[in-house]
């Protein structure tokens, strides 16, 4: 298991990287943390003819608080850095909660925040989380810059709107309104393994305990992460009662997902645990919202 040969570029600035990507066009592939890409290359399933390694681009690795109380995270920030960052812990504990489920510590120390999102693995946690948090993705090309909301970024399994001559540069997360709670839950066969189903919810309550807003993503149960419409339909404007949450679970798990059977789980099982996970995720998210997010 040795990769095929490839041409290698290690730019030290974003501009240099974009120049190189522009030159290479379809032949170029961005190397971020490489924890999925290099494994695929070792199997010779991936055979890029040139890699543009962003690991020397120091300017892509940062976690900056934004003026509005959110965060901007540079694409090359290691997942473990995000996991242990005080601003992240304070503002978006959901990210910390999720990070612990991403593979194993050794992978998180090398794998990058932006790389994982751009990889758009339907069983990857961060692409789903980017969607449920409605992160804003900054995509840069040579002389171009555009912002895409995460739900529009991911268009298929392992597919995004990022063109070969572009790269994901930054992700911006807006602050949660007050009385927002979030909860990530997953079922995987082993710690660090791929989830057979996972659910993340972010909910906001008003002062009367009425659900003001809800975002819920269902992961690993379709070819792309699913942002639940049913959750919004059923919950917004209502009290998040046990029955209401059950209704979301029932509706979402029967009509919004399209799970596949594979070696580790049948489609039926996936559907069944998705229902369970929706209840668990929403229930705890609302509890947390009541406690002001804690």
């Amino acid at each position: 298991m040795k990769p095929v040969n490839f041409d290698y570029y290690a730019p030290s600035s974003v501009d240099e990287a974009l120049d190189t990507l522009a030159e290479l066009g379809y032949d170029g592939k961005v190397l971020a943390g490489g924890q999925s890409l290099i494994a695929a290359m070792n199997f010779r399933m991936a055979r890029p003819s040139a890699l543009v390694d962003l690991n020397n681009v120091a300017e892509l690795s940062y976690i900056k608080p934004t003026a509005d109380g959110g965060l901007a995270i540079g694409t090359m920030t290691r997942v473990s850095t995000v996991e242990h960052n005080q601003d992240v812990i304070q503002r978006f504990p959901l990210l910390v909660e999720v990070a612990k489920f991403i593979a194993h510590p050794q992978i998180r120390r090398r794998g990058t925040f932006g790389g994982a999102i751009a990889h758009a693995d339907p069983a990857g946690q961060l692409p789903s989380i980017s969607m449920v948090m409605n992160m804003q993705a900054l995509i840069k090309g040579k002389g171009t810059e555009r912002w895409v909301a995460a739900p529009d970024l991911i268009i298929g399994p392992f597919m995004t709107v990022i063109e070969p001559n572009e790269m994901l540069a930054e992700l911006v997360i807006k602050p949660h309104p007050p009385r927002t709670g979030a909860k990530y839950v997953q079922v995987s066969r082993q710690s660090g393994g791929y989830a057979q189903s996972a659910v993340a919810s972010i909910v906001t309550l008003d002062e009367n305990e009425i659900c003001k807003d809800v975002h819920m993503v269902l992961m690993s149960v379709a070819e792309v992460p699913i942002l639940s419409e049913k959750a919004r339909e059923i919950l917004i404007g209502n009290k998040p009662s046990k029955d209401a949450i059950e209704a979301v679970a029932e509706a979402a798990s029967t009509s919004e997902i399209d799970p596949a059977s594979d070696l580790h789980a049948s489609a039926d099982y996936r559907r069944s645990i998705t229902r369970v996970l929706i209840v668990r995720s929403l229930t705890e998210a609302f509890e947390r919202a009541k406690r002001g997010g804690k």
Partner: peptide, 21 residues
């Protein structure tokens, strides 16, 4: 081949999305 022996995880979702496309 390799696709079957180590790529199981991806095959189904990729096939579905290809049909869609």
């Amino acid at each position: 081949g390799t696709l079957a022996s180590v790529g199981q995880r991806m095959i189904d979702s990729v096939a579905k999305s290809m049909f869609k496309t």
